[in-house]
Nucleic acid binder design. Structure first.
Lengths: 168, 168
DNA sequence: TAAACTGCTTGCGTTATGCAAGTGGATTAA
DNA sequence: TTAATCCACTTGCATAACGCAAGCAGTTTA
């Protein structure tokens, strides 16, 4: 059995850094959380930043080991692996939104790539909770009683609108 | 003149990761922001995680290059460098609090190291704003009209209380 | 039965990290 | 005045991580 490697310290910021403090973990989680990618191939071929195959494999493995993802074979294709967010990963949403809001304010973001984050930030705690409930339904199978247009749909719509506005 | 190196993408999460996505940047910022360290030596000798000298030097340089810190010689000691947070770094506070809250919930944090984060999270937006105003006064020289006990003092008090409670 | 798809692994060169020691200027104490 | 200490690093070197391109083995589809 793999014993947990010793932690540098018990400070929450440090521990979060030890889990997520590399160049790819948050980007992979973003693609699963906001982009709806569920497989190695889906992440790889749609990767905006061009993640390398070995890096993606190692990150997925690490995220599973750290309890942020679970892996299960696809029902229709034994070799295909479906990755699901855990509650631990879904609970990262507020931090990701805060980090994205900071990025939008201080870093040279592109509007159509920032729009999902903007919608979620402006939607406040209510919209964030609704999105987390959707993620829990999609990834954990926890029934979500909310009705009407899903947050995921709203995000996708905003993204498409932003894209078309930029093209003209 | 140093031309900016090409970004992997204009996504806010990715850009934030490119700036902060390593094992030390957030930890150094934490020590300056919450620990009140202002010099290389102060960070190094109090480092909970035992940062190496060359890594600290390279991170400080990087953080200055990325506009999160400014460096100025100390008035009493020409060789001593005082680092100050920029507005860009102070604006990271909400994200750091959110990340710390996540760490407290899902990672094996130690109570006395988590208490500052907890106080700030439970204090809500109001306390966060008050602390940011204090940081702006301390690091940017922007007058802070607020009176009474400072947030920094409250955090320190909570930390000392947590420490003494643990020792018995 | 072959082609395409699946999730990887492997080799290899480059870059980053980590440890220990050293450097050189500034300040302080005897 | 001189020695010790403080200050912010740098340097050398070993190890680990990253990044690119290619390859691989099982699965499914045409």
């Amino acid at each position: 059995m793999p014993e947990p490697k010793p932690k540098r310290s018990g400070c929450p910021i440090n521990l979060a850094t030890e889990v997520l403090g590399d160049g790819w973990s948050l980007v992979v989680l973003r693609d699963i959380m906001f982009g709806g990618r569920r497989t190695y191939r889906a992440i790889l071929t749609n990767s905006l930043e061009g993640i390398a195959t070995n890096i993606l494999a190692s990150r997925l493995k690490q995220l599973v080991e750290n309890g942020l993802l679970t892996a299960a074979p696809a029902p229709d294709h034994r070799q295909k692996t479906i990755y699901s967010l855990t509650e631990k990963a879904i609970a990262l949403l507020p931090a990701m939104i805060a980090l994205g809001a900071w990025g939008r304010q201080f870093l040279p973001t592109e509007p159509e790539l920032a729009i999902r984050n903007q919608v979620l930030e402006e939607g406040g705690r209510e919209l964030q909770e609704a999105f987390m409930a959707e993620l829990r339904e999609t990834h954990l199978g926890i029934a979500n009683p909310s009705s009407g247009q899903s947050v995921a749909e709203r995000l996708e719509l905003a993204f498409q609108q932003a894209k078309s506005e930029i093209r003209r």
